[in-house]
């Protein structure tokens, strides 16, 4: 977890940007951890959803480079459970978008194995490309 106690203007700008993109007030998060407890993909993440929320609160831009934001599949389990009515899946989306809007792709869509392309349904490809290509 980040331990910086001095919030710089850059930190604050980052928090504001994520609030704006996600439409959430991330500072309302009380760090109860229910999002992390319910997340079906938390074991794959390098930061738990609650850590992600905390890092955004502190304006720590490293969260935008985390694996967590790409692992989140927007299953909305945290959305349903958050006692503060926050939607961490929207925060993860905002962080993904920060990357994707620089025309960065998280997956290489030209090199998906042929045998996989033959069986993958369109629904899988469309959603993966929406979430993971810029």
């Amino acid at each position: 977890m980040p331990t910086n106690t001095v919030i710089t203007a850059a930190n604050e700008a980052f928090l504001r940007r994520i609030n704006e993109l996600s439409g959430e007030k991330v500072t309302r998060c009380e760090q109860c951890g229910i999002c992390s407890a319910g997340c079906p993909l938390v074991a794959e993440m390098d930061r738990t959803p609650a850590e992600m929320m905390r890092m955004v609160q502190l304006g720590d831009e490293d969260i935008a480079k985390s694996k967590t934001i790409w692992i989140c599949a927007s299953c909305f389990t945290c959305t349903v459970k958050c006692p503060r009515g926050l939607d961490p899946s929207k925060v993860a989306e905002a962080l993904r978008q920060l990357n994707l809007r620089k025309a960065v792709d998280y997956i290489d869509l030209m090199n998906i194995p042929k045998e996989e392309m033959e069986i993958l349904p369109q629904i899988a490809l469309v959603s993966a490309f929406r979430k993971l290509t810029g």
Binding site: P40, L41, E44, I71, A73, S74, C75, T77, I107, I112, E116, L120, A124, L125, S127, A128, K131, L132
Partner: peptide, 16 residues
């Protein structure tokens, strides 16, 4: 019954 199946991770992250 309401746990995510991993959705589109099936494209690039089959193990999950």
């Amino acid at each position: 019954k309401k746990v995510c199946c991993g959705a589109y991770h099936t494209v690039h992250n089959k193990d999950t």
